[in-house]
């Protein structure tokens, strides 16, 4: 008799899986968890029934979090708190022409960033530690940097997602490694440009991102399950996926209405 795993029983406890005969089940994958089968098995298999009871008892112990009540009028309160902070509706500056120019814009950004990088390398500031001017005086330059950096973050998010989503007995990360290696190069340029613009938030996230990308590049191409789990756990613990997403969203917003870089609190 094939028994159900703890994972199956967790899904069953939470009402996941489908019933045979349910019209939406026709496209069920071969590994679909059929609730009818689990139910029948639990009635006939003492071992699985015992495991399920233990699981259910524990999960029922997990206390209900008592959420403080909010009045019917709460939505209006929230609205009144935020209404004065809503930005004026803006027509995106790239509206109408940005789509097809985005690629050439990214190219221009790389050129500008590389230019800044090379200039910084070749002519380091001779005066010691005069405070860096925090805001790029050139708004177009700032927009180009933001657009290119947010594209870079979107691409990095896809690599991280590939890593988090990889499954199967043997996982092949060769493509993700090549991709990460490319991203590391541009990551350094964008981080450097962000640091020059006094954009600590961006520079810090890119710094963390570089560490994860390096780990992917230098890790095994065909990681064992345990190795893959370790890398994933580190990416997860650093909340890197969330940080990259939030920052990408924020930069997309700033592209439309660039403001001073947000300082880290």
């Amino acid at each position: 008799m094939t028994h159900y795993t703890e994972d199956d029983l967790i899904l069953y406890y939470y009402g996941e899986g489908r019933r045979r005969g349910d019209p939406s089940t026709s496209s069920g994958s071969p590994q679909a968890l059929w609730r009818d089968d689990v139910e029948h098995h639990l009635e006939t298999c003492a071992a699985c029934a015992k495991a399920y009871r233990a699981l259910a008892e524990t999960l029922q112990l997990v206390p209900v979090i008592d959420v403080p009540e909010r009045e019917e009028s709460y939505g209006l309160d929230v609205w009144q708190r935020i209404r004065s902070r809503l930005p004026e509706p803006v027509v995106p500056w790239w509206h109408g022409w940005f789509g097809w120019k985005r690629l050439s814009l990214a190219g221009a950004a790389v050129a500008i960033v590389i230019g800044a990088f090379v200039a910084g390398r070749m002519w380091p500031p001779r005066a010691p530690a005069s405070p860096v001017v925090a805001v790029d005086p050139n708004e177009a330059g700032a927009r180009v940097r933001l657009a290119a950096t947010s594209d870079h973050l979107d691409r990095s998010e896809r690599v991280l997602l590939d890593l988090m989503n990889a499954e199967g007995q043997t996982v092949d990360l060769t493509d993700q490694q090549a991709w990460s290696a490319d991203l590391i190069d541009s990551n350094r340029l964008y981080r450097d440009a962000a640091a020059r613009a006094g954009d600590e938030l961006v520079a810090n996230v890119l710094d963390e991102l570089e560490r994860s990308l390096l780990e992917i590049v230098h890790g095994p191409s065909m990681p064992k399950a345990a190795e893959l789990d370790e890398v994933r756990a580190r990416v997860d613990l650093a909340a890197l996926l969330f940080k990259v997403r939030i920052l990408a969203d924020e930069l997309h917003e700033r592209e439309i209405a660039p403001t001073q870089p947000r300082k880290i609190t």
Partner: peptide, 11 residues
């Protein structure tokens, strides 16, 4: 939208 979703968002 804010009025409609605020309580769920808070929870």
């Amino acid at each position: 939208l804010v009025e409609r979703h605020s309580r769920n968002v808070f929870r």
